[in-house]
């Protein structure tokens, strides 16, 4: 499925939040179209920062990030909306509107990107069906379980039918059963061709999914691809992460 030219490319990407805090300190990485990757690493290692750069929420301080050949360092604020329509973003806190029903949450996002009421009526059911939440279409977010809310958030990320999906800690607040469900949905979307980048702590899910893993530490890539040693360590002692200079 992966084609020759990388879909996502990070070139010595550095992000400095201010003079003292850096989010990333030189990350180089290539992701092919249709790939599924996990960004792993202890807290503060820069997982969310990568997601933020890819979703144009944060600009590279040095180096560059490219999506489909488009440099994100040179993006102007006016260009951001159109770039975002090619990226589905699943925020860690779901970001659902509490006073809107499930279908309205998805519909509202569609209306915001210029779709008509007619389109909302026609397309929302199918989108909800893709993440298996159609039966709860008329519920309000506070009537849903965490896993169900996460599915709505994913559904909303799919409204533009994006070729790339970014999820920050999609299983962060979920119990293992619900986490499985979410990862299955993401795997399913991936099998339909969507490139997926997931930032996570959830070592169980990473292992179970059996996809490419990028291990980050202190804003740098710890080691390429699958690192069994670290996985092993984290599994044995999940609360005591390996130390690193900081």
């Amino acid at each position: 499925m992966a084609t020759a030219a990388p879909y996502i490319q990070l070139n010595k990407l550095e992000v400095a939040y201010n003079d003292y805090v850096s989010g990333l300190r030189g990350v180089s990485l290539e992701v092919s179209r249709g790939e599924f990757i996990f960004l792993c690493g202890q807290t503060g290692s820069g997982k969310s920062t990568i997601i933020k750069v890819l979703s144009c929420q944060v600009k590279p301080t040095k180096g560059d990030a490219l999506i489909d050949g488009r440099s994100l360092a040179s993006v102007t604020p006016e260009e951001v909306p159109m770039l975002r329509r090619k990226i589905g973003i699943v925020p860690q806190d779901f970001g659902l509107l509490p006073n809107k029903k499930v279908w309205e949450n998805v519909g509202y996002a569609m209306r915001a990107v210029g779709r008509s009421k007619h389109e909302v009526r026609n397309e929302v059911p199918a989108i909800l069906e893709r993440v298996n939440i159609l039966h709860r279409a008329d519920a309000y977010p506070n009537e849903l379980s965490g896993g169900e809310q996460q599915r709505v958030a994913i559904a909303r990320a799919l409204i533009n039918n994006p070729p790339l999906l970014l999820a920050d800690e999609p299983t962060g607040n979920l119990d293992p059963g619900h986490s499985d469900e979410i990862i299955n949905i993401l795997l399913d979307l991936n099998s339909q061709g969507t490139t997926i980048v997931v930032a996570t702590h959830d070592i169980m899910q990473v292992e179970r999914a059996n996809q490419r893993v990028i291990q980050l530490a202190g804003g740098m890539i710890d080691k390429g691809d699958h690192d069994d040693e670290i996985l092993q360590h984290m599994r044995e002692d999940p609360l005591e992460f390996p130390t690193e200079e900081s």
């Binding site: 979703s55 604020p77 006016e78 951001v80 909306p81 159109m82 770039l83 975002r84 329509r85 990226i87 973003i89 925020p91 970001g95 509107l97 509202y108 996002a109 915001a112 990107v113 210029g114 909303r156 990320a157 409204i159 533009n160």
Partner: peptide, 17 residues
């Protein structure tokens, strides 16, 4: 804030926001 964040997240244009 929430609505505006969602709008920006899904790629609503500035005019829309």
């Amino acid at each position: 804030k929430k609505e505006m964040r969602i709008m920006e997240l899904v790629g609503a244009t500035r005019q829309t926001v």
